[in-house]
Write a protein that binds this DNA or RNA. Structure first.
Length: 645
RNA sequence: GCUAAUGUAGCUCAGUUGGCUAGAGCAGCUGAUUUGUAAUCAGCCGGUCGGGGGUUCGAGUCCCUUUAUUAGCACCA
């Protein structure tokens, strides 16, 4: 007998060698049915894994991370099976589960959309026929024999690199045998609601020196509703695409003459400036100062900072009178020059110097993407110069500021701590202290954090603030980086209590990150329907006919004189036509239809975006409502997706 | 940067295996209409087909090259 302990602490005895799935069946049929994988003593294994000694056991279904991983990993094998059936000449590489779905890489001719539909058909055939996943453990020699004979060079390469003593296992489904650690579903029929999404090139082992393979991405779900929700979010993201909305709402544009550098139109610049107004308002409350440094500085400065050595290929350069100048990719070196203009006392610290800096980074052409990835952008940077004993408090203050500002936009977030990477500078002790400081602050902040081992900057550990938007997508915007490099390289000091020079600790931090990128995220987050305080056009006045133009104009003048941003649509079109444009296309928050009734009574029937008619208001009531909505920075209704099905 | 796809009027798109003066809808302009909550009607204007080169009697259509965009990869200090 073996004793099996469950997550709730209870335990029961079973016959030795019992399969994990049998244990589940023993508890309940529904549990066995929902179970995708199982952890035995913390290791995820197949459902027919035999338990030969006392163990703790956790059953995973699709709602667990582990369950999803197994489900999608198995889906990828089915994909590979289908592809090798249809295209016998392809070579298979790897096919893991990812955060949202799975992919499989093949050495093959590029797949077209028709190919994907054809492969989907083959997949449903495989799923319907209910083929078993068969696990086998093989020796290294056997494994090599299997895959060498098939000419599967990528698999052979992987086998040769497996460490000595590693258990080598294969999973077979139908005719398709794959080198794989597993675990897998028991049967292909468990996979349901599978869609292939896209196909494109991907380098073997992610290295751009290697062969370009063809990757097919897919997704699958046990429930049809989940697939539908997934597809709905994708469709909504397409609708909200900021490049499309940017054009429709007259926010910004791009030109072939300067790829990756946005042009801001009046409406877009309004949003941009308003974001900065808000930023300044909040930062003033936190005793930040603001400076501005030049965008072009001599090369020698970047040699001192280490950028020339490490990042020169991303920097734009220019030559003047035999002297090389660099368009700054970061604000810090310039800011440090200003810090060093004066001696600083320990009493002055922390010094929090903000800078809305225009930086240029020579991104690869293939990386450019709307406002999300540009070659020139404004960082809402700030450098905090402080004493060691101030680290924790300063970081907590930044986190609280982040929280305040993000919640104004209805953005959720989580935190990630990145620690020392392999290629880094500084002593172990310095890293230990710095990381400890960040971790202390994170623990005290108390919303939890994820750890990214080895993902820090070469000069110090960092906290990344990951935004979750209305479509449940995650973006990195804010960051808090502790720098142990520049204080050393630039020798930045303060004078301590004993009149001695002491090295500063320095933080780089941003909240929006890049204003351009943050704006792109907001456009998609709100679907173009900005909160009233951010909306470039707040109200559209719609006269019913020419007869009411004069009165409508007087209402327009009144609102404009109070500082509202108003459009006046006096074209001789029907009301429905003007509504369609103001609401459906321009996403104007409020619309006033003005005709005989209004002119006689000064009472307005107000239409609000996404809500339609919201009732009657006298002009003064309406004005206070708008003013209140602006000053409270009220979030708009209805920008979040509803999933009622 | 890599792989693939795409680039036709201000916008969204159609243009069969290369063959008459390159089409449509929307927008714009003009006129009619004077309109009460998601497209009133009519007429007009508008492109040399991303740029360059080539094949051909003939190129939007085929080839080469270049540029930009899109997706993914790689990159993201």
């Amino acid at each position: 007998m073996v004793k099996i302990t469950f997550p709730d602490g209870n335990s029961r005895e079973f016959d030795e060698g019992i399969k994990a799935i049998e244990v589940a069946k023993n508890i309940s049929k529904s549990l066995a049915k929902a179970t995708i994988a199982v952890s035995v003593d913390g290791k995820v294994v197949d459902l027919d894994h035999q338990i030969n000694s006392d163990a703790s056991i956790i059953f995973h279904n699709f709602s667990d991370k582990e369950g999803k991983e197994v489900y999608w990993h198995s889906s990828s094998h089915i994909l590979a099976h289908a592809v090798t059936n249809l295209y016998p000449d392809v070579k298979v590489a790897i096919g893991p589960a990812i955060a949202q779905g799975f992919y499989y890489d093949f050495e093959a001719e590029p797949f077209t959309d028709e190919d994907l539909r054809k492969i989907e058909k083959e997949i449903s055939r495989i799923i319907k026929s209910g083929i078993k996943f068969e696990r086998a453990e093989v020796s290294r020699e056997e494994a090599l024999k299997i895959f060498d004979e098939k000419g599967e060079i990528y698999k052979s390469e992987l086998i040769r690199e497996l460490p000595e003593g590693e258990v080598i296992s294969t999973y077979t489904i139908g005719k398709f045998i794959d080198l794989c650690r597993g675990p897998h579903l028991q049967n292909s029929s468990k996979v349901k609601n599978l869609r292939l999404l896209t196909s494109s090139g991907a380098y073997w082992r992610g290295n751009s020196d290697n062969t370009m393979l063809q990757r097919i991405y897919g997704i699958s779900f046990p429930d049809k509703e989940e697939l539908e929700k997934f597809l709905l979010i994708r469709a909504e993201a397409e609708k909200r695409n900021h490049k499309k909305l940017g054009k429709e709402l007259n926010l910004f544009s791009f030109h072939e003459e300067t790829p990756g550098n946005p042009f801001f139109k009046n409406n877009g610049l309004f949003v941009f400036n308003t974001l900065l107004d808000y930023w300044r308002e909040e930062h003033t409350k936190e005793s930040y100062t603001e400076i501005k440094t030049p965008i072009m500085l001599k090369r020698v400065l970047w040699e001192t900072s280490g950028h020339w050595e490490n990042y020169s290929e991303n920097m734009f350069t220019s030559e003047v009178e035999n002297e090389q100048y660099i368009l700054k990719p970061m604000n810090c070196p310039g800011g440090i020059l200003m810090y060093k203009e004066d001696l600083h006392s320990y009493r002055e610290l922390p010094i929090k110097a903000g800078e809305i800096g225009l930086v240029h980074r020579n991104e690869y052409s293939g990386a450019l993407s709307g406002l999300f990835r540009v070659r020139s952008f404004h960082q809402d940077d700030a450098h905090i110069y402080m004493r060691k004993d101030q680290i924790k408090k300063e970081i907590l203050d930044v986190l609280h500021l982040v929280d305040r500002m993000y919640s104004t936009f209805g953005l959720k977030y989580h935190l990630e701590l990145s620690t020392r990477p392999e290629k880094s500078i500084g002593t172990d002790e310095a890293w230990e202290n710095a990381t400890h400081g960040l971790r202390d602050a994170l623990v005290e902040y108390g919303i939890g954090y994820e750890l990214n081992e080895g993902d820090g900057a070469f000069y110090g550990p960092k906290i990344d603030i990951m935004i979750h938007d209305a479509l449940e997508r995650v973006w990195q915007c804010g960051t808090i980086q502790l720098d142990m490099n520049l204080p050393e390289r630039f020798d930045i000091n303060y004078i301590n209590e004993n009149s001695e020079k002491e090295k500063c600790v320095m933080i780089h931090r941003t909240i929006y990150g890049s204003i351009e990128r943050f704006m792109g995220i907001l456009i998609e987050h709100f679907g173009g329907f900005f909160p009233l305080w951010l909306a470039p056009v707040q109200v559209t006045i719609i006269p019913v006919s020419d007869k009411f133009n004069d009165y409508a104009r007087s209402v327009y003048d009144k609102l404009v004189s109070l500082g509202f941003r108003v459009d006046y649509d006096n074209r001789s079109e029907k009301v429905g036509y003007k509504i369609r444009e103001a609401d459906g296309i321009k996403k104007t928050p409020y619309m006033l239809v003005i005709g005989e009734k209004e002119e006689g009574t000064n009472i307005f029937t107000v239409r609000q975006h996404k809500k339609g008619d919201i009732g009657e208001f006298g002009l003064d009531d309406l004005i206070s409502r708008l003013q209140e909505e602006v000053s409270s920075k009220k979030l708009p209704d209805g920008y979040k997706l509803e999933f009622n099905k």
